[in-house]
């Protein structure tokens, strides 16, 4: 038996165990914990999308709050102006709106790489933030917009049902299924010829161009997919949070998306997912225990960059390899 099949069998086994755990968890945990995990999974979708740009295409965006926020605000506008509360409509609206913004911003941004790409994405995302912040008669300003509990597949929350229970059970499974679908699609994307072309662009732009990859077009498509994923996450996030405020459009939220992707390890496929879930717990507990939670997160980030640049998953992989070699 070759090393590869052993590894992939082990991988399949652990994936099956994790999946089983994710399915059973809501019956074992209290609702609060399940909701917390839902947040983690939603951020993981955003991280998957973000990492298509950072990990696979080599572009560091500091403006992904724009697409997350656009997804969330699209949902809020659907509620406010169309009076629709169907989750499926929310998702379609969120994806379309964020994809439209990503198409516009991406068209401008993919002409640049490295630091200019980062600053341009940041500046453009701040345009959206300032509009959400200032046009309070449309966006509610800093008060934000409320979003009621939606119907899932046409099924309303039973009258008298506790919102917590609804979010911790049905909504959790809804999020989980979309997360798994998003995961599968992203896996196919990065292992497709298109995904390989992106990695070629990341590793050597000139050579990629030489073998016939249309660099700018491929970057644009990657940007679009990345934005749509992040928008999907925003649309899923807003019913859970019940409210959308300009805060999620601010560039510091983009910083968080970068943070959890690097925390998990952006050179691996699963790294950003682990990073998003771990970051969510980290932030929640830090916020719950101290007013100086930014200090805690900042120190984690600094230590991470200085000592563990490969992130959680990258470091674990390296340790695993070393152990196997020693054995």
């Amino acid at each position: 038996m070759t090393m590869v099949t052993v590894l992939s069998r082990r991988l399949l086994l652990s994936a099956a165990v994790i999946l089983a755990l994710l399915v059973i968890l809501p019956s074992a945990l209290d609702p609060y914990q399940t909701i917390l995990l839902s947040y983690g999974l939603i951020f993981a979708i955003a991280a998957l999308g973000f990492n298509l740009l950072l990990g696979y295409t080599g572009l560091l965006s500091f403006g992904h709050s724009a697409y997350f926020g656009m997804g969330a605000y699209a949902v809020a506008f659907i509620v406010k102006y169309l009076k629709i509360t169907s989750m499926e409509v929310f998702l379609i609206g969120g994806i379309l709106a964020s994809a439209a913004v990503a198409a516009l911003f991406g068209f401008l941004c993919v002409r640049y790489t490295r630091i200019f790409f980062g600053i341009l994405t940041l500046a453009l995302s701040q345009v959206l933030w300032s509009l959400a912040f200032k046009f309070f008669w449309v966006t509610g300003g800093t008060d934000g917009l409320r979003v009621p509990t939606p119907s899932l597949l046409g099924m309303q929350m039973a009258p008298g049902q506790d919102k917590m229970t609804f979010l911790a059970h049905r909504y959790y499974y809804y999020v989980l299924i979309i997360f798994l679908a998003g995961l599968a699609v992203m896996w196919v994307i990065v292992h497709s010829p298109f995904g390989k072309a992106l990695q070629a662009i990341r590793d050597n732009e000139t050579r990629a161009e030489f073998v016939g990859v249309q660099v700018r077009k491929y970057r644009f498509v990657a940007f679009l997919i990345s934005g749509a994923y992040t928008g999907l996450a925003g649309a899923l996030w807003v019913p859970l949070n019940g409210l959308t405020t300009p805060e999620i459009l601010h560039w510091t939220f983009s910083g968080k998306i970068v943070f959890f992707t690097v925390l998990g390890g952006f050179q691996t496929f699963v790294g950003p997912i682990i990073g998003a879930v771990v970051y969510n717990y980290l932030e929640t507990y830090a916020v719950g225990h101290t007013v100086y939670w930014q200090l805690v997160l900042g120190i984690v980030l600094v230590v991470l960059v200085l000592a563990l640049p490969a992130g959680i998953v990258g470091t674990a992989k390296r340790l695993g390899l070393r152990l196997r070699r020693a054995a």
Partner: peptide
């Protein structure tokens, strides 16, 4: 990233 961490700190 490290300057972003520094910003938070």
């Amino acid at each position: 990233l490290i300057t972003f961490g520094l910003l938070l700190v």
